[in-house]
Design a protein around this nucleic acid. Structure first.
Lengths: 166, 166
DNA sequence: TATTGTTATACTCTATAACTATA
DNA sequence: TATAGTTATAGAGTATAACAATA
């Protein structure tokens, strides 16, 4: 807890700058691909992908909002858009009538299937083409650690209680 | 040029997911810090930091737009906001009267100085706390490669010529 | 009372296209 | 004609707060 830590080592700085640069460029490229191939925003793709990831294609709104870092109203907005396009349906949960269950439709799966190959290809050509297999291993390991760490820290996008003192 | 590449190895997938997760969580945290500490958006911080990075604190609009991945009109908008707050000034270039030179003001430097410590601290506690020195070395090396690769590919945010065939 | 989700609203950001001015 | 930048505009996305319904 040394609070004199007000600087970064050159290597840390380098890692940070490289990270932000890769993040930004990759994000832009991927967003363009998703938009072109399936008329999906990145968030919408994430939501569909998350639904496609589970066998029955169903998740509760809150679980979706937790996965994507997102406000609940923002999720409602995006879910509406996806529903209007027929890519998901929404229905009240049987277990808990407060909850809304979002379900991936066949059309939603179709869009995912349309978009995936290009998505994968973009990742190959933009990111993995530059990295050896060992590099990918290392990257997965290191960023996995970082992700675990980050995930453990922050209060999620849940209902904010009363703020402390601020 | 093997076009049968429509899948990723599990490790690649893992690296990708970890990357997006770290990117998203880190970005949110950093944005909140910048907003709280200096009422700056991430883009605004990037612009100020870029100006602070060069001795005279001056850059041309186009150079700024190139650095941040950005449309020129978007940059004009942000530059206006920064100018209204007195953090930068804009004046025509002497060399080339078409160009606008953006200059970091003393107030701009002050805001940077206010924001930096918290920014550094956030990076420490959110990212580097989870990584060994060796990990950071590796991360810098690998992402550096990736950044070089990405930087070499895409046409920047310049005036889009006529597209080729695509 | 706490939780889930929606609605209303206001605001920020971003891009496109048209435009001006200089090289 | 090409480049640098601004303006007008329109649209997407996001968050906050108020609200309704269920646990």
């Amino acid at each position: 807890m040394n609070e004199a830590r007000v600087s970064l080592t050159p290597t840390q700085l380098g890692a940070y700058f490289a990270f932000t640069e890769v993040s930004s460029l990759l994000r832009h490229a991927v967003e363009k691909q998703l938009r072109d191939a399936g008329d999906l925003s990145y968030v919408q793709f994430q939501l569909l992908a998350r639904l496609g990831d589970v066998p029955n294609g169903q998740r509760r709104m809150t679980d979706l909002a937790d996965g994507v870092v997102y406000s609940r109203s923002g999720l409602t907005y995006q879910a509406q858009l996806l529903q209007q396009r027929g890519l998901v349906t929404r229905s009240p949960s049987l277990d808990d009538e407060r909850s809304t269950v979002v379900t991936l439709t066949a059309a939603g799966r179709a869009v995912l299937a349309t978009v995936f190959p290009g998505h994968i290809h973009a990742l190959h050509s933009l990111l993995f083409a530059a990295l050896s297999d060992d590099d990918v291993d290392e990257l997965a390991r290191i960023l996995g650690q970082a992700a675990d760490h980050l995930r453990a820290i922050p209060p999620r996008s849940a209902t904010p209680r009363r703020r402390k003192s601020s």
